[in-house]
Design a protein around this nucleic acid. Structure first.
Lengths: 242, 242
DNA sequence: TAGATTGTTAATCGATTAACAATC
DNA sequence: TAGATTGTTAATCGATTAACAATC
């Protein structure tokens, strides 16, 4: 017994690859592929086969050794691991442009996160319907969370209200918070947090863009547009320079 | 001369921390703080001071040794490194809910990414104004990119159109692509890509939520809601279990 | 059997952290 | 000077990759 705290001491990097594996496997499933080897699957994701097997090894028992993976078995196995083998009821607090956009985004439900409540404090928004669902008064949030057993809460309010919203979510029983507000939320133990900061992503991209522009200047001074290359690439799920 | 390809061989992890440093420093600047030590700054971001200094060391010359950092100097230095010392003109292709939400998000411009064009192919959307800017026909995109010197393109179209949009952006001269569509884009060399997949983030969160629920069951079987803890935490900019 | 494949351990690589001389 | 701080190198840690026995 080394470090076996539940089934949860899995590296961050591995956790972030699980959804990518699942996505690719669902595509294969859709076109009727039955078996897939670690080499094939890894290749299509631009990673090493040994990394994929190493990742799967944290959970184990996806295949018999010597035989490739069966898509039909691997898909539900990954869904179980990720925790979306049954729908994860999700609420959205903040019915501004972003909140409404998310509520409208049908893919969320398809991927296992049905929106079971949208809330705001703005009386002008309350009552509006989005995909058959009314925007509700924030006061109703705790009741809805309990009724629908909502587990995940998405925060799309302005930064100054985010902490208060988070506190009320936690009190209502929300277990995971998906935060779009650019603030550092303080949460009690036993609540998961993921910050989704678009500005951070844009700035990382900007850094690369700056590097590319600089290298263009070096290679072809006085050119308006650099010469287009040819190679292509996909990444670890986020970003890279092609 | 070991590995000195331009100024761009900086670890991913470091690049992603730069925006966080900048954000915190701007907050300090706003409340009139003049000097800040690596220890203070690192503490407020829940990282080690040595990591912060190590990160800065890739660029160097932010302070004289022995003296703390001067906020007034560090802010513009970081902006320069990230590439937002002057505004980075940005276009959005796809004026659906998400595209409109982003176009409305004033913070983008404030953080250095003014939206200089919003495009779609849907005639019902073309002509609508968002914050004084009309949604334009996709055909106009190349012209606008050239006129405004747009560098970054945001893709908020359905997945099946994303590759075509990306191709046209690259042809028009876009250097960095911020992709919200859940597809693997193939890009020529010399174009930076960042995928912003909300589903991936939600699934990583779901994994944690599942772990938390399991551990609650272990500790207090037959309890409806686990006992709230107390500690708090901030992360590396993304996610963690508190 | 021969070839292909997995699960699993060991080797490599890179990022984080610690240590400390140089500086103020 | 003594205390605090940085820049920078070395030590540690963790994640990726390679290797290979076991299996089909």
């Amino acid at each position: 017994m080394r470090k076996k705290r539940k089934g949860c001491d899995v590296p961050e990097a591995t956790i972030h690859r699980l959804p990518l594996y699942l996505e690719k496997l669902k595509l294969l499933q859709a076109i009727g592929v039955e078996d897939v080897s670690s080499r094939q699957l890894a290749e299509s994701l631009d990673i090493k086969a040994s990394q994929l097997r190493h990742d799967f090894h944290y959970f184990g028992g996806f295949s018999r050794p010597g035989r490739p993976y069966q898509v039909e078995k691997l898909v539900p196995a990954l869904e179980k691991i990720i925790g979306i083998d049954e729908p994860v009821p999700t609420i959205i607090v903040g019915a501004g442009h972003l909140g409404q956009a998310l509520a409208n985004y049908q893919n969320l439900a398809l991927q296992g996160f049905p929106v079971c409540g949208i809330f705001d404090v703005n009386p002008r928004l309350i009552g509006l319907e989005i995909r058959g669902q009314p925007i509700r008064d924030m006061e109703e949030m705790p009741r809805v969370v309990k009724e629908k057993n909502a587990l995940i809460g998405v925060i799309t309010v302005p930064a100054q209200y985010a902490q208060e919203v988070a506190d009320r979510m936690v009190e209502a029983g929300i277990v995971g918070i998906f935060n779009f507000a650019p603030t550092d939320l303080k949460l009690p133990e036993g609540v998961a947090l993921r910050n989704e900061r678009m500005a951070v992503g844009l700035m990382a991209l900007s850094f690369r863009v700056k590097c590319i522009l600089e290298s263009r200047l070096q290679h072809s001074p006085a050119d308006e547009v650099g010469p287009p290359g040819e190679s292509a690439a996909e990444g670890d799920g986020n970003d890279q320079v092609s």
